[in-house]
Amino acid sequence: MTFLDTSEAPSGFLDSPQARALLVRVIRVAFPHAQLPDTAYEKTAAALIALAEKTPRHFLALSSGLASLDTLPAGAFLDLNATDATARLRAIEQTEFFGFIRANTVLTLYNLPEVWEALGYEGASFDKGGYLTRGFNDLDWLPEPRIEEYTGELNYVEIGPLTRQVGTGTAPAASAATRDEVTK
């Protein structure tokens, strides 16, 4: 996209420190992680601005979305606490503006090596010889399980019920916290 160098050209708001600060805040409120360095959010914001500037559609959505965030009666977005800011974003989550930020943050933020490191992921491994001697089996809080196929006295059941009891029903602890509505 090229901008005309005349008085009719867009204001350049998206390039302003204010726009960048707002975007960093939106991303941090929408994707809160205590352990991530500020640079991760800043890099993501910069990448999203660069991406938006490539197409008029995203440029318009991001510019007007950010600019209007800060002109709300509720007060400046940057002054809202995390709870209020989250509520504010929930109210606009269906907009093109927020959808652009959400989708591209997921693709950008979690693809940053510094974020991998903060989350405890080690990234590329082949050049280091894989994990064969670097902990692929270092979990020590459970007993060593069998790796061979079952050779006990039970027959494998192909049709009909199992011949011994297997746990069924709903897991008490596991389910409560994050069972999202998952459909298909």
């Binding site: 459970l142 746990g167 069924t168 029903g169 709903t170 897991a171 008490p172 602890a173 596991a174 389910s175 916290a177 994050t178 069972r179 999202d180 998952v182 459909t183 298909k184």
Partner: peptide, 19 residues
């Protein structure tokens, strides 16, 4: 459900279903 039970049996603290 079986997967949640399986992880619960070894002490999971949360489980997330992915579509």
């Amino acid at each position: 459900r079986q997967a949640e039970l399986l992880y619960d049996a070894v002490g999971s603290i949360s489980a997330h279903r992915t579509p």
